[in-house]
Design a protein around this nucleic acid. Structure first.
Length: 811
DNA sequence: GCGCTCTGAAGTAAT
DNA sequence: TTCAGAGCGC
């Protein structure tokens, strides 16, 4: 069967209007600037589009797709357009549709590297020893598998944790090394065991008919390398190739692209070497730096006109990035003038910094700075490491400032979601051993390590799946008592759900078309009437006892988890069946909840790439934290340069106001440490920076300032030579030259602890964590307080102050 | 088999 | 400091 059956079927379905447009003019071209237009119109041959931050990269890319279609160069299904994230793919789809004025269901090959590879691999799975209905492992499955292999190899899993092995293997896969092609010199710092474990792992995956994320690319590259006929098929089929964020590609992706573009070389790579921040994840900046060598005669277009930020912000960003070596070189410029300089401020410590930013956010909302009011939802705080977020969360909780954190555990990575998914996976295919392992004792069924080991042994001895092994074990009465009963129930359940998934004996098929067209017959409980896959999901969660498990759980997270389960079931609505859902979820992670309340966004610099905000705060610019000591230790100059690019990414997220700050002292792992301002601060061009006076730091004379009361420890930390660093001295000089504004009055607060028990019912009070509230009951030294944000809580009186003194809370 | 306590490590993260 | 995972006692 030809691999292109469904695509060819599609060809016939492409609306005529879409194919016969070439004769007409292309009005969308008029909306481009000269550089963008050049990048769009150079349709044939290799093109490198160097697109600086905020220069309309997506616009150029999507217009290029529209132009390819419009000019009749390619049909929608002959264009391969790859992105890194689902979000980017979705946005691209929407924007192409808008340009064309009609939906683009017809772009089956617009997607992430991984999504496209899944499609390719399902068609040619047998070429790498897999069946086309292979499962895609998540990180948890992967780690469990590796752990088993490490234990089986008799290696001390404490010295060599599965995580370490996993990252070594990921790294190798990123470089497109299979166990067979792994260079002998690569031992992976895992004693010399890693290569053998890698081979064992791949073997195990094959047995399980499973792949991990790295395999998706690796297997396809292997197929392309070993099977010329297959490769040529696709080289012909994908007439035009477009790649987004090319600077983020790893070796495997690079090879994949080079193989596919090998024939016609109609490849357009879009990227920005200055925004390459994923080297630690396997990305090779070299790929983009080398493009012209890989594709001689390539057209190189630079997009340098920035439509996002003020001139000061751009100049500051340029000043920083210029310190990097080996750039392809771009200079951003803007037609707009005016705007505020980049603001720079130093603080005593991390808490002070958080407090100041909190105040600043409130001031911005009021427009009290003499600028237009900037709402919370227009502001973002971008940090280097996620643990920096804590100080802000604490502060914002205290003052009741709404915030949202981007990042952290994603919906589909949460425990309860993974558990539920494992049940679904088992229902779809009962030989999914990893899913079985995950849920065999969740909820608790009295099947601990020992029972599970027996099942493993039985399964392996008979060469069957764990579910089968368990069945054999039960039949042989090798398991007894409570465990046996609950295991039997579980097995019955799995059998029943599986039958339901199969519906009226409809065979499971791996054919895309069948899945996509929803040709599955509705599931049906044994002997009963057909039910929807949504009902089936609910039944599974109910009968397995999983829902009850969380209902009986008394921990504060339990309600949230139940809520997530409901959401999961709801997510099923947009799919035809469980199979389609599982396929989708294996590759997709996002779960964006939109809410009405305006909130400031807290996220890492990495997460912020590609986004923009009117006001951006960049706290924690201290040497060691940013640039990160670890990055520099591990990767030397290369690491430092990547950190610098991160700084560049951070600054260029800002449209109107960019505020950089650092703290002289910070508590790290419970220890006070002092730090020097980041070397990147020295690299900010002075003409574009406005140094703000930090509250309480300067006082009447430098160094002798009336400083807030501090502990001895903090006092000691402050004596470090912060004040001798070049950055600090320059800040000093700038501040004095401009005439410093009056420092804010310092607080020297003494709280009379004896006086605090004198609260009365109804008093409005304040608590550091819970914020404002009213006293509803008094029991000795404990107060019951109805907090405005945190609800009713009992709190010891000494942690409470009258609301009027909220600012004075010293603890 | 389950749950509590101690110990050790601590980064950024999409698919 | 905080969190996860291992080990130990019931």
């Amino acid at each position: 069967m030809s691999s292109f059956d469904d695509s060819e079927a599609f060809e016939a379905a492409v609306p005529l209007s879409q194919r016969a447009m070439s004769a007409r003019s292309a009005p969308y071209l008029d909306e481009l600037n000269p550089a963008q237009r050049e990048a769009v119109e150079a349709l044939d041959g290799p093109v490198l589009m160097l697109a600086g931050a905020g220069t309309g990269k997506t616009k150029a890319l999507t217009t290029r797709i529209a132009h390819l279609l419009h000019s009749g160069k390619a049909r929608p299904n002959e264009i391969l357009a790859v992105t890194f994230t689902n979000k980017a793919a979705k946005e691209m789809k929407e924007r192409v549709a808008r340009l064309l004025g009609q939906p683009v269901e017809g772009m089956p090959w617009l997607g992430t590297f991984h999504a496209i590879c899944v499609k390719l691999l399902r068609r040619h799975a047998e070429l790498v020893g897999l069946k086309s209905n292979f499962t895609i492992l998540d990180t948890d499955d992967q780690l469990r598998l590796l752990k088993q292999l490490i234990v089986a190899a008799g290696i001390d899993e404490k010295r060599w944790p599965p995580r370490a092995l996993s990252s070594i293997i990921d790294n190798w896969k990123n470089r497109a090394w299979t166990p067979e092609t792994l260079p002998a010199a690569e031992t992976g710092a895992f004693d010399h065991h890693a290569p053998a474990l890698y081979a064992a792992y791949q073997q195990r995956l094959r047995t399980l008919n499973a792949v991990d994320f790295g395999d998706l690319l690796l297997h396809v590259v292997t197929i392309f390398q070993k099977h010329d006929d297959v490769l040529e098929q696709y080289q012909r089929w994908f007439r035009y190739i477009l790649v987004d964020e090319y600077q983020d590609t790893n070796v495997a992706q690079y090879l994949w692209l080079r193989l596919l573009a090998g024939g016609h070389k109609n490849i357009c790579c879009v990227g920005d070497d200055d925004q390459s921040i994923y080297g630690w994840r396997g990305a090779e900046v070299g790929n983009i730096l080398r493009f012209e060598k890989d594709f001689p005669g390539a057209t190189v277009v630079r997009l340098e006109q920035n439509y996002r930020s003020t001139a000061h912000i751009l100049a500051a960003a340029s000043g920083v990035i210029e310190a990097n070596q080996g750039r392809l070189g771009k200079t951003l410029w803007t037609a707009a003038d005016g705007g505020e300089k980049v603001r720079l401020i130093g603080h005593w410590d991390g808490e002070e910094e958080a407090r100041w930013i909190g105040d600043e956010l409130e001031a911005m909302g009021q427009g009290t700075r003499g600028q237009r009011p900037i709402g919370l939802d227009e502001c973002a705080i971008l940090v280097r490491a996620s643990h920096q977020m804590r100080a802000f969360e604490d502060r914002f909780l205290t003052i009741g400032l709404p915030y949202k954190v981007i990042g952290g555990p994603r919906f589909y990575e949460r425990m309860e979601i993974r558990d539920a998914m494992a049940y679904f996976r088992l229902a779809v295919s009962t030989d999914d051993d990893l899913a079985f392992e995950r849920i065999v004792n969740t909820p608790k069924r009295g099947l601990g390590d020992k029972a599970q080991q027996k099942i493993q042994v039985a399964a392996r001895a008979n060469g069957v799946s764990l579910v089968e092994g368990a069945r054999i074990l039960l039949a042989a009465k090798e398991i007894s008592g409570k465990g046996a009963k609950s295991l039997a129930e579980l097995l019955d359940g799995i059998e029943r759900w599986h039958t339901a998934v199969l519906g009226a004996a409809q065979p499971v098929t791996d054919d895309d078309a069948v899945i996509e067209e929803g040709l599955f017959i509705a599931p049906r409980m044994p002997g009963g009437k057909p039910i929807s896959h949504i009902e089936l999901a609910e039944i599974i969660l109910e009968e397995s006892g999983y829902t009850a498990h969380w209902q009986n759980d008394k921990t504060p997270e339990a309600p949230g988890r139940l809520e997530n389960l409901k959401e999961l079931v709801k997510a099923l609505e947009s799919f035809e069946n469980l199979q389609g859902f599982l396929e989708h979820v294996a590759l997709i992670m996002d779960n964006e909840s939109d809410d009405a309340e305006a909130r400031v966004t807290l996220m890492t610099l990495h997460a912020a790439k590609g986004l923009e905000f009117p006001a951006v705060f960049l706290p924690g610019w201290e040497d060691g934290l940013f640039p990160s000591q670890r990055a520099m230790d591990e990767s030397g100059l290369k690491g430092l340069e990547e950190e610098r690019r991160l700084a560049y990414v951070g600054i260029t997220r800002a449209e109107e106001v960019c505020t950089i700050s650092f703290a002289a002292n910070r508590r790290i792992y419970g220890q006070w440490q002092s730090a020097l301002p980041s070397r990147f601060i020295d690299e900010l061009p002075e003409a574009h920076v406005d140094v703000l006076t930090p509250p309480g730091l300067y006082g009447g004379g430098f160094g002798a300032a009336a400083q807030p009361v501090r502990s001895d420890l903090q006092e000691k930390a402050s004596r470090a030579d912060v004040y001798n660093s070049p950055g600090w001295k320059r800040m000093q000089a700038r501040g004095q030259a401009r005439g410093m504004s009056q420092p804010r009055e310092t607080r020297n607060v003494v709280i009379d602890l004896d006086a605090v028990s004198s609260f009365g019912l109804g008093d409005r009070v304040f608590h550091k964590k819970f914020g404002y509230g009213a006293v509803t009951a008094i029991e000795g030294d404990k107060l019951e307080i109805a907090f405005e944000r945190a609800g009713v809580k009992k709190v010891v009186a000494k942690f409470i102050v009258p609301a009027a003194n909220a600012d004075d809370v010293p603890f």
